[in-house]
Amino acid sequence: MMETAISYPTEGGMGKTGTWRIFRPVVDNSKCINCRICWVYCPDAAIKMLMDMPENEGKDIKGIEIDYDYCKGCGICANECPVKAIKMEREEK
């Protein structure tokens, strides 16, 4: 019998997709209001809220961390941010 092809869940199924990026989102965490809009709309799940990280538990902390290994630079976060805390800057390679 022919074997069925089975895939297993892995981060980076297509490698480091951050290399696709032309514009890089740069965040100014001092402006962040923890609204979670960028986090929820990110198509690549590449944004993490600082307050969700285990080491920041219980702390009153504002801001996000972007995973540049996988962020494809679509710019939805910068477009949707209500306080304009994220700016898109051209990648220099």
Partner: peptide
């Protein structure tokens, strides 16, 4: 409210969608 959404992610980073794809959102 989006503030109460679960933190678990079932779509992993580094998938093959175009940048800005609505499917993964």
């Amino acid at each position: 409210s989006i503030k109460n959404f679960p933190k678990e992610e079932y779509v992993l980073k580094g998938h093959a969608a175009c940048p800005g794809c609505p499917i993964t959102i």
